[in-house]
């Protein structure tokens, strides 16, 4: 399990619709905004890279000091972004794929408005379980 990991889902309008600190390290008060800053800035890179490949998993696209940003872009241009300090590429890929499935299930909910915040607690627990499993 990574000591620091921040997972965030960004809608196609660049609005974060789900955020979770899934690292094992103790949560620091200022970490939240630093992570947001890094991930937010990494969107610029994603914007460039997303159209250069047909793969959804973009691997590690950006880094800040020892923190790496890995991104997975869905077909609807929703971006699953993970900020992490571990080097477990396969695990991250599996994590993204499974979260993508969960996200699709959320989308299938007729009461969920695409692009709105994901508030499902079920989704949250599932994501955290996946993070424990793969990261």
């Amino acid at each position: 399990m990574a000591t620091t990991a921040c997972f965030i889902i960004v809608s196609r309008n660049d609005i974060p619709i789900y955020e979770a600190e899934v690292g094992s390290a103790a949560k620091r008060e200022d970490a939240a905004q630093l992570h947001q800053f890094i991930l937010h800035a990494a969107l610029d890179i994603v914007q460039d890279l997303a159209w250069t490949t047909s793969a959804m998993y973009l691997k590690a696209i950006d880094r800040f000091n020892d923190l790496v940003v890995s991104v997975y872009v869905t077909a609807g241009h929703t971006r699953l972004m993970l900020l992490h300090d571990s080097r477990n590429d396969d695990g991250i890929k599996s994590f993204f794929q499974e979260v993508h499935e969960l996200y699709i299930k959320i989308l299938l909910n007729p009461l969920y408005l695409p692009g709105s915040r994901i508030t499902s607690s079920h989704f949250d627990t599932k994501v955290r379980a996946l993070a424990r499993k793969y990261l």
């Binding site: 890094i38 800035a41 990494a42 610029d44 890179i45």
Partner: peptide, 18 residues
């Protein structure tokens, strides 16, 4: 520099300013 890139990378610009 991020601002001057084409197209501008505004989010990076903001982040580095901060």
């Amino acid at each position: 520099c991020y601002l001057l890139t084409k197209p501008s990378m505004l989010r990076k610009y903001g982040f580095h300013l901060v």
